[in-house]
């Protein structure tokens, strides 16, 4: 992976740069030039933000590189998994069964 860095043109960075600008403009577009309801706009922008974060992590912050770069990836996947379990698990547990019958 490191050998591609020194001599060749940094395509990764260029693509990442263009994509991140495109995603930002898309978010602006969705907000100002479409007539979606606010909640849909938030969902779209949220989704775009996740892609934005992934681009930053992989193309600029090089999470997978280095001797034990995979640890970062495992760490992030595990954190996301935990967050999902905690948030959606709690909602599920507290709003089903008798709790749902208010």
């Amino acid at each position: 992976m490191s050998s591609t860095h020194s001599s060749r043109f940094p395509w990764n960075h260029l693509i990442g740069f263009i994509l991140s600008i495109a995603l930002t403009l898309l978010a602006v577009f969705v907000k100002f030039y479409t007539s979606f309801s606010d909640s849909i706009v938030v969902w779209i922008i949220g989704t775009l933000a996740i892609f934005q974060a992934l681009i930053q992590l992989f193309m600029f912050m090089h999470v997978t590189e280095g001797k034990e770069g995979w640890i970062n990836v495992v760490n992030m996947i595990y954190s996301v998994f935990l967050a999902l379990v905690i948030v959606f698990g709690s909602i599920w547990v507290l709003t089903s069964g008798h709790a749902a019958m208010h």
Partner: peptide, 17 residues
């Protein structure tokens, strides 16, 4: 991290939970 509800089955949860 996936078993915590077994401490309060009797809260009256749904059968699925």
């Amino acid at each position: 991290m996936l078993v915590w509800v077994h401490h309060f089955y009797t809260m009256g949860n749904s059968a699925a939970v």
